[in-house]
């Protein structure tokens, strides 16, 4: 695995960005041999640029999407809030004319017109949310995944105004009581922070595919966009795909085969 070894110096560097790096440095200054080191997990799935292809031909009705949405929301402890205003969604479905705004026309074929489409964070190449965030609580990883650091978010919701896809939700109240079945492997969120799809970064890190991919019976595929032999590149080469609002130049990483 490339660039996996990260010396403790970097670790100290990270903490130096915050406050109080000194005690850490002092504590390890005496150990002249080799200090502690931090690595990625050996089994982690990696890519230069993650992307997703959704084959909408493999879906027929709303029921086909239920297990996918349920799997994601269950694994990530996404709360089910009764009040519509407070709704939180990581992945959900909507009609063509809403997902691909201003691209519908009167004579669209019946299948596309009535077929629900999956909507989630686009993990943009040039994410407007990341640019807007005043604390870098939302950031883009080297592999293209746009993530939230819930510890740092101040809840200003600038990212929600910036996102042209409506992919972000805000915790208008404590979400805990509304998490139906807690998944102990993943934290919940607290009131006052923004959240969204995280491309299952926590699963990729331990070698697992994203939850939606697993629940989709092959209709959703993720892979490395920069690897010409990857499964996503294969799908993109052999099928006509569209993306949401490509004219904004954000460079969404979610492709739809229609």
């Amino acid at each position: 695995m490339k660039n996996s070894r990260r010396s403790f110096l970097k670790l100290a560097g990270i903490s130096a960005l915050g406050l109080g790096a000194k005690p850490v440095l002092n504590a390890f200054a005496s150990s002249d041999e080799h200090g502690p080191e931090i690595f990625p997990n050996q089994e982690a799935l990696t890519a230069k640029r993650w992307a997703m292809v959704i084959d909408t031909r493999k879906f027929e009705s709303e029921e086909d999407f239920e297990p996918i949405v349920a799997a994601c929301h269950k694994i990530h402890n996404v709360p089910k809030l009764k009040e519509k205003r407070h709704k939180i969604d990581w992945i959900w479905i909507d009609d063509f004319k809403h997902v691909f705004t201003y691209q519908e026309h009167e004579f669209l074929d019946d299948r596309v017109k009535h077929l629900p489409f999956l909507v989630l964070c686009n993990h943009c190449e040039k994410p407007a949310c990341v640019r807007a965030c005043p604390t870098r609580a939302t950031f883009k990883r080297e592999d293209g995944i746009v993530l939230m650091d819930f510890h740092r978010c101040i809840g200003c919701r600038f990212c929600m105004a910036a996102c042209p896809y409506g992919s972000r939700s805000f915790n208008f109240r404590d979400p805990r009581p509304f998490v139906e079945e807690e998944n102990k492997e993943f934290p919940t969120r607290m009131k006052g922070v923004v959240e969204k799809c995280n491309f299952c970064a926590e699963r990729l890190a331990v070698g697992k595919m994203p939850a939606c991919v697993e629940a989709s019976n092959g209709a959703i595929v993720v892979g490395d966009l920069h690897d010409p032999d990857s499964n996503v590149r294969d799908l993109l080469k052999n099928n006509y795909t569209i993306r949401r609002k490509p004219y904004l130049g954000a460079g969404p990483a979610i492709y739809y085969i229609v």
Partner: peptide, 20 residues
């Protein structure tokens, strides 16, 4: 702010790219 106690994060992690 959703988390007003963390408001100073704006100074702790200064981000010149953000208009805020």
């Amino acid at each position: 702010l959703g988390q007003p106690m963390r408001a100073l994060n704006v100074i702790l992690y200064p981000t010149p790219g953000s208009v805020l």
